[in-house]
Design a protein around this nucleic acid. Structure first.
Lengths: 353, 353
DNA sequence: CTGTTAGCGCGTTCAC
DNA sequence: GTGAACGCGCTAACAG
């Protein structure tokens, strides 16, 4: 029924060993025999059975990718990046969504083990997720998005979230905003770093600027919506807001729209990971963005390089996020021309360095 | 190093055959032996090698999912649905993005074959994609989103896109819109059906209503943007527009915003698959939506049921899309209260049945 | 340079 | 009811 290396060998009138050698590109085969084998391969339309191959040579061509939620565009792009390098090297990637649930994550880790995967990329649900079994089994492991507490034996690819927060603060400063607030995520390293980078810059390097309020949300749409609502109750003086996550940014915008606060004339807004196709309705939102596809690619390349005998593990790759300027943070400086034709609620800008 | 069924058997002082029987739930094992085997399994923390198992019993626990673009939320949700049922049945799913390119799709199909997958779910790049190799190899195949021309040997799970188009037309009619336009996608079955359902309803069942213009785009943001631009040049009389795809809906909205056309006061808008987290900035867009997660689940269940000896293939599952009413299509009828406070460009509603 | 042979880990006939 | 032995398809030793 299905054609095996045996059939190829017989048709080429060689042994299966020779056929195997040709398949694996060994140089030590007589050219005419090699040609016969290749002819048989195309004639029979033979494709090697990767399952058998994997069983034999424990090095697997199947990778696993475990993330909290593939519906989040950050992770889908990351997966595309990983897929890019996997395809180039003839690997395939199987997917697991953990929904940030310990149980599901565990389940997929066991599956990965049972499948004898040749590599694992994971955005761990907890910062102490136990990866030791995979690591002990010699599987290359790369942690993305969120660093692990114990990370000597894995490679890590993350964003410099502190720099991301600072970038947002710098931008708001340069555009002349003074009283700013922040809607941050839950107290995990990723969110905390973004907040910390933001606040630290304002406090140390932005004279005359001030973080009037910080509110925490759940990184989801509703969390941003609620946080913005609370913010509107308390701090009326702010002229700009930094939201540390894409979905919360939209929640906040929704709340602002309902409250009748206009962006950017009444309030400047800067978000995080607000990718282009979110920018469709309404004005383009200024945002600090991660290149998640690149992160996926780098993760894949780390997997590949870990295979090499005792290459250095424990490597940390930290990418710097990029500022993408939209229409939600126009300049508030008096020098600029654009500021003139906005509505009347604007105040004059303070002196800027 | 890694524990095999051999180790289990030795520790339980039985043969590997007995150990295997226990693992596979055979009834014909003496209880005390079975208990010893189970004890050994937990003691050694044994996990069966799925690779070896797959090689032996050709029935595979690995599925493949091939879609054009995993970044499209429609497909990510579909994949979550498939994953839901895969996890429940201890399968895993590997992913391939074809980018609608014939070559990439072909490549992933070969990979699926070489991996001896136990099932394939595919949104084919072409309507005549050749799946015969997989089918001949006995792999259950389910086609989603876009039907195949030759579909006797596969199951198909799609949306009733004609009904989706009709739904949009009915809604616009019931809200009192009269002169409507449509931005449709490229001339593939999915897009054509949505357009056809829309136009047909207007022409046959909506007296006084008229499709003033139809423009085709590329299903991407820019396509919607350009199409809306052209539409604004030509047809000034329309009071609502139907866009047959989510990304184009946003492109159109962007063009409208730039042109100073306000939604919904100047123009009603209804889209397709505009999911909730797109609804964040600006007003909520009325939309005809598919339940893509459900489609993924159904696809997975078809895979499972195809395994059963000579179950009926060629089955077609057609889901009806749902209307989600937002704020972009308020009623234009004089009877309603809301119509009163809109700006002056409105005309009085015609008589409605 | 080539062919024969031994497993990789598991499920499954066969005898017992 | 149980165990020994074979083979799934392939690669990597080893002889020749």
């Amino acid at each position: 029924m299905v054609v095996t290396i045996h059939d190829v060998a017989r048709r080429a009138r060689v042994s299966i060993a020779t056929a195997s050698r040709v398949l694996n590109g060994a140089e030590t085969v007589r050219p005419d025999l090699a040609r016969r084998v290749l002819a048989a391969i195309t004639a029979l339309d033979y494709r090697p059975n990767r399952v058998a191959r994997r069983l034999r040579a424990s090095t697997s061509q199947l990778w696993a990718l475990i993330v909290p939620d593939f519906e989040n565009v950050f992770f889908t792009r990351l997966s595309r990046g990983l897929e890019d390098v996997a395809r180039l090297h003839d690997r395939c990637v199987f997917l697991g969504s953990s929904d940030d649930e310990f149980q599901k994550e565990r389940r997929y880790l066991e599956l990965a083990l049972a499948e004898r995967v040749g590599g694992l990329v994971i955005a761990p649900a907890e910062d102490d997720t136990d990866l030791s079994e995979l690591i002990d089994a010699g599987v290359p492991v790369v942690v993305v998005d969120r660093p692990l507490v114990y990370n000597e034996l894995v490679d890590t690819v993350i964003s410099d979230n502190i720099a991301g927060g600072r970038l947002a603060a710098e931008h708001l400063q340069s555009r002349g905003y003074r009283k700013v607030a922040c809607i941050a995520g839950p107290p995990n390293p990723t969110s905390s770093d973004r907040l910390r980078g933001f606040v630290r810059y304002v406090e140390t390097s932005a004279p005359g600027m001030e973080v009037s309020a910080v509110i925490h949300g759940d990184n989801r749409f509703d969390g941003g919506y609620d946080a913005m609502g609370r913010l509107l109750m308390t701090a009326h003086q702010i002229d700009a807001i930094f939201v540390t996550n894409n979905l919360m940014t939209f929640g906040a915008l929704k709340a602002l729209a309902i409250a009748g606060v206009r962006v950017p004339s009444d309030l400047g807004v800067i978000g995080f990971d607000v990718v282009e196709f979110f920018q469709a309705s309404g004005i383009a939102i200024t945002s600090v963005n991660q290149d998640s596809r690149l992160m996926g690619r780098l993760a894949g390349e780390r997997i590949l390089s870990q295979r090499r005998p005792q290459s250095s593990r424990g490597q940390l790759l930290s990418l710097t996020p990029q500022l993408v300027v939209g229409e939600s943070t126009p300049s508030r400086n008096v020098e600029t021309t654009r500021a003139a034709c906005q509505d009347g609620e604007r105040t004059n800008a303070d002196d800027v360095a």
